[in-house]
């Protein structure tokens, strides 16, 4: 069958799609977007998380045919997506009083790595959460990273100053085997703090 949908703002058409194929397979194998990862294919790890009409979902559990006419954002489009969001909605949503339960910028930075020499992909524009993952050391093997980024970006979109418990709950559908999650928490706190500072 043929499936037409929008990925990262671009119209896409996939042909000869087998009816049992998942959105994940179509993204990875037919559209050249392997950023969403295939770690469990049963909705138990979150590595394939994408936004489907704005909602974070496991793309491994969406049948390709179900995305006809719909909009998908993957990790490959996350930087543009975040940029457009910032431009159009002025979103940042920082708590004016600074008493919203999130981590202060100062606290978030107290552990910050010194030296910023990740030069690969120089000139690549990153979303705040992507940059924070690099800066906080939240990336090791990186296989869980794309799904975590999509989920964490969505958390910060609707909750600009999440508490640690909020972060843990929002990311409880994303498994990471390398980091023990501590640096992932750091990254989300850092992105939230920077986002607050920017507004």
């Amino acid at each position: 069958m043929r499936v037409n949908f929008t990925v990262n703002g671009r119209r896409q058409e996939a042909d000869d799609v087998w009816e049992g194929e998942s959105l994940l397979y179509v993204l990875r194998e037919r559209l050249g977007l392997p950023g969403s990862k295939n770690a469990c294919e049963q909705g138990e790890c979150g590595s394939c998380t994408v936004r489907l009409d704005g909602v974070p979902v496991c793309s491994c559990l969406v049948a390709a045919g179900q995305v006809e006419g719909r909009e998908v954002v993957t990790v490959e489009g996350l930087a543009d997506f975040a940029k457009q969001r910032a431009e159009h909605s002025g979103h940042g949503g920082a708590c004016a009083t600074g008493a919203c339960g999130g981590t202060s910028l100062q606290d978030a930075r107290s552990w910050t790595a010194k030296g910023t020499d990740s030069q690969t992909g120089e000139g690549t524009e990153l979303s705040p959460i992507q940059q924070a993952f690099i800066d906080a050391g939240a990336v090791q093997c990186g296989f869980c990273t794309p799904g975590l980024l999509v989920a964490a970006d969505e958390l910060l979109e609707h909750n600009a100053s999440p508490t640690d418990a909020d972060i843990r709950e929002a990311l409880s559908g994303n498994l990471c085997r390398c980091t023990g999650y501590e640096k992932i928490l750091d990254a989300v706190r850092l992105a939230a703090a920077r986002q607050g500072e920017a507004v």
Partner: peptide
């Protein structure tokens, strides 16, 4: 991997593959 800073041992330099890994 390049740097304006020294970036030698003992520093918490960042992963050279970090950007590629966060962009998919």
């Amino acid at each position: 991997q390049g740097s304006q800073t020294k970036g030698g041992i003992g520093e918490s330099t960042l992963r050279p593959d970090g950007t590629l890994k966060v962009t998919g």
